[in-house]
């Protein structure tokens, strides 16, 4: 009997642990609800109040551990350490459906002053490639927080040492050079097209599932060239396993002054990947302004600069409000034009 009791107890403990672990993942998800209740009470007391007065829910429409998640958590970390926001900002992951599940959640919070969402360039191209209905321009643009660029990389033992070598070989052998990138109809695919157009050449683009797969196939010699974000290939560059032929920025990066730009070598390929924060459609003006102020302070903090921008090899690019709205719009137009020419536009 005693044994049996003990066993039941053990099992109940296990169940509780299970419930706890289940909550661990949702911990963040529950807090906003609590805050919602709190808001209800406060509204009753004080009808005209100043933003912010309740928790901001920061939606990441991708999985924990990915690029957008890291940015969101770095922002909240900077806020916490610098005591930047008077109210807590809580990260909530809503992954799935190529970001569309999280985006739909934010779209449904139309006019809500207390919701933020991460946006990366992929969320601009996804709806254009026919993989969703929600466009990046549907949201209220708050601020671009950072810019990422692409390197064109080759294995260390490659016969190509300059972009010129690549273009020459590609001209001699149209569609013969294999160039690897992440996904189809994505930024890597689009920048391949931009390079092809600028140089009057044609590659054989091979789509991989992610940056690390691209790098291992490049180092294994299964593709001739590949696109990679600086932080995806820096350790291999430093270790002498791969070489960078060019970067897609207007000017050379401060962190890598030896790497030439496509533009200075005569190919007009300029491509920035955006990392920014958006609000739901129709976000109230005071919330937009207040959010931008918080994000500006984040972008000026040391935590943000050292622990995020430097660690991830990103370029500091703080572009708030209307200017950022224009960045998103321009990006969308450029993607639309490129995908249209590539035959991949499925709006």
């Amino acid at each position: 009997m005693n044994l049996k009791k003990g066993l039941v107890l053990a099992f109940v403990v296990l169940l509780l642990l299970g419930a706890l672990a289940g909550c661990g993942g949702q911990e963040a998800a529950q807090e906003p609800e609590k805050a919602e209740e709190a808001k209800g009470e406060e509204e009753a007391k004080e009808p005209e109040s100043k933003w912010p007065e309740k928790t901001i829910e920061f939606v990441v429409p991708w999985k924990a551990g990915g690029g957008s998640d890291t940015m969101a958590r770095s922002i909240t970390k900077a806020i916490k350490e610098g005591n930047i926001s008077p109210v807590p900002v809580v990260v909530v992951n809503k992954p799935g459906g190529n970001g569309q599940i999280g985006e739909a959640y934010v779209i449904n919070k139309k006019g809500d002053p207390y919701t933020w969402m991460t946006l990366s360039s992929g969320q601009i191209s996804i709806p254009l490639a026919g993989l969703g209905d929600i466009k990046a321009t549907d949201f209220t643009a708050l601020a671009q927080m950072a810019g990422d660029t692409l390197f064109l990389v080759v294995p260390a033992d490659s016969k190509f040492n300059t972009l010129e070598d690549v273009v020459k070989a590609a001209k001699a052998n149209p569609e013969g050079l294999k160039i690897g990138g992440s996904g189809s109809g994505t930024e890597d695919h689009i920048v391949t097209y931009l390079f092809e157009k600028a140089a009057g050449i044609k590659f054989n683009y091979i789509a991989f599932s992610g940056g690390s797969e691209v790098m291992s196939n490049l180092m294994g010699g299964h593709v001739d060239l590949a696109w990679a974000n600086p932080n995806e290939c820096l350790s291999q560059v430093e270790g002498g396993l791969v070489e960078v032929l060019g970067v897609t920025t207007e000017e050379r990066l401060d962190s890598t002054p030896d790497i030439p730009t496509f533009r200075e070598l005569g190919y007009d390929v300029v491509f920035w990947q955006v990392r920014g924060v958006h609000g739901p459609p129709g976000m109230p003006k005071e919330a937009v302004e207040g959010s931008i102020e918080i994000l500006r302070k984040v972008s000026e903090s040391d935590t943000w600069k050292e622990k995020y921008l430097e660690a991830k090899m990103l370029t500091p690019r703080f572009i708030p409000g209307d200017d950022y709205t224009k960045v998103i719009k321009d990006n969308e137009d450029m993607f639309r034009e490129a995908l249209g020419s590539m035959g991949l536009l499925k709006e």
């Binding site: 190529n98 189809s184 109809g185 994505t186 789509a207 991949l344």
Partner: peptide, 20 residues
């Protein structure tokens, strides 16, 4: 879901939850 090779949606019947 989404086919990685060509980025085409298959058998999702317009349901976002099926996309992955």
């Amino acid at each position: 879901g989404v086919d990685i090779g060509h980025g085409v949606l298959r058998f999702t019947y317009g349901n976002v939850y099926m996309m992955n």
